[in-house]
Design a protein around this nucleic acid. Structure first.
Lengths: 163, 163
DNA sequence: ATAGATGCAAATATTTTGCCGCCAG
DNA sequence: CTGGCGGCAAAATATTTGCATCTAT
């Protein structure tokens, strides 16, 4: 493995949210945002998610904890979290559809690497990626605030098991 | 400017399709795909597009050339081009909505850099990006076939004119 | 001639909005 | 108390599908 890279292999699953348990809830608390029963449930689901969830996935899990959570509230909470920059929005190359996936964003940016055959999504961090972002800032004289890199291909397992 | 980077500043506009005029049309011809009147119009629009178009944008322009082009045909043609890997699908960070944008993909991958304030989208190529992709292939032992990198931030002009 | 393409309408998928009653702080 | 929040229904946006008809080769 390259010495410049550190990656979390999350074989279809995400490593648990970077900033630790209850990070999103804490973040909203700190900002003095009203914490309703529904929001607590939704934040818990997102904080504990071990893989990337879309609105529907969040809703399903939330309703298992509390059937009184409404789909619209999920969307409104996602919007809130986006507004405060606490989560990132992904498409995962539309592998599964046109919906968006969300993850609470940890201290470092990472790349999502998806296998187009088996659907596993792995995360990848690299010094090169940081350098690339710096290069863009320098060359364009701009302030970069969001980045999204999604890579698709065929993973080692799928290449091996090819018929 | 860094010596490792070459970028096309396409101030909201794309530099004309990499592979030259009629590239998409030629590509389909070579593959022996039936070229209907509608397809020719749609391909012409996409080949000549100087900026990233979504399905609606393609439809509008196509209908100016030939009012008999149907929205559904646009979607079906996009699907066809995706199937043959002749175009790339972008979201541009959902700056303008949840639709997809398309571009005929040239010989090189590039990054899309969007200003969150003025909406200008510029394209950026970098050796670092190629290195990053190689690193992913090496580290994960995978074959990378698609990549999408979208960067958002505030461009020099917008930073300067900040009130 | 005929496989494959188009048009139309309707369905589907995903997300957003208006309005009103409710509850966290 | 009260201003923001949630529920419900409906709208909006974006894309896909079934089926009958047409057309490029």
């Amino acid at each position: 493995m390259s010495s410049t890279a550190a990656h979390r292999v999350s074989t279809g699953e995400r490593i648990n949210a970077a900033a630790g348990a209850g990070a999103l809830l804490k973040a909203l608390e700190e900002r003095g945002i009203r914490l309703t029963r529904q929001r607590r449930v939704i934040l818990e689901v997102m904080d504990k998610a071990e893989r990337h969830l879309d609105a529907d996935g969040i809703l399903e899990r939330a309703q298992k904890l509390d059937p009184g959570v409404h789909r619209v509230t999920v969307y409104r909470t996602i919007e809130l979290l986006k507004k405060y920059g606490l989560i990132d929005e992904l498409d995962l190359l539309h592998l599964r559809g046109d919906q968006h996936y969300y993850e609470s964003h940890g201290p470092r940016d990472h790349i999502h690497v998806a296998c187009l055959r088996c659907g596993k999504v792995r995360e990848f961090e690299s010094r090169l990626y940081e350098q690339l972002k710096s290069q863009i800032e320098r060359d364009f004289h701009m302030k970069v605030t969001v980045t999204r890199t999604e890579v698709g291909g065929y993973c080692a397992d799928c290449l091996a098991s090819e018929t």
